[in-house]
Amino acid sequence: MTTKATQPMDKNGIFESNPAYDKRRKRKQTLFFILFRGAAAINGIALLIIVYFMVVNGWRAISWEFLTQPPMEAMTKGGILPCIVGTFYLSFGAILAALPIGIASAIYLNEYARPGKTVRLIRLSINNLAGVPSVVFGLFGLAFFVVILNMGVSIAAGALTLGAMSLPVIIGATEEALKSVPDTYREASLGLGATKWQTIWRVVLPSALPGILTGAILGISRAAGETAPIMFTGAVFFTPKLPTSIFNEVMALPYHIYVLATAGTEIEKTRHLQYGTAIVLIVLVLGMNLIAILWRAHLRKKLK
């Protein structure tokens, strides 16, 4: 536009406005904002469409029995209680295993470590860990937790595998949260004769906690919906019993959907059960996210 250089200018370089050009650039702005708004809207629409299909196809399956009974008659009837319980235990175990290690690693990387080869190597490993496909985590869990550590196919092995998979997310979220704590807090604390650890424990962590917890729960809730990491390590095709020990095998929601949809004896007949199970899984995952968000809001309010 400027190359035309037909703008009349006075000797001070002040030029008159060009109404045609002004109109054009305003139109351009409007066009791009509409595009961006559309791109953002696709996210919401995608979720709505997914939920819509789930509900339309699966609402008939949802009932009190569905939530409180084990599967019956070759999984064509009955409920999914063992799957709900199994997924709950697996997720909870994954949090227990991954949260301390993830937070500790992030504290080391962000607060203590001096930049150098070691830190670069650790960061490289974490970034690569995040890129490892979930089925590879499943195979790792099978080889390491199930076989080498002799845990068998169990809640423990499945939860540890899910935990390992969530580690990069938890570390990333924790590092972000730690970075968002202003350095002036650290300086103020150290300036009063606090040690580095006192500073982290009493000032940095409380300020970062909302971010850490949300990141962690979002990471775990993502893992909770995964099938591949647990199919060799914790989840089984069918077991009507509820687990009594962390070394029991369990059923799990995502694996159950996979089983019903691909390996069941009556795939067509269980269609509504598949959707029903998916609804329960989504509600569970969104519920965990909701808890994370409410918790964060509560902690933030306490800080203010």
Binding site: P182, A188, S189, G191, G193, A194, T195, R202, P206, S207
Partner: peptide
Amino acid sequence: GMVFQKPNPFPKSIFDNVAYGLWVN
């Protein structure tokens, strides 16, 4: 001791801010 350019109280109560240096010591 040090006082910084921008006021940087901790996100804690007024009392806890002043008591902090005593507690950590």
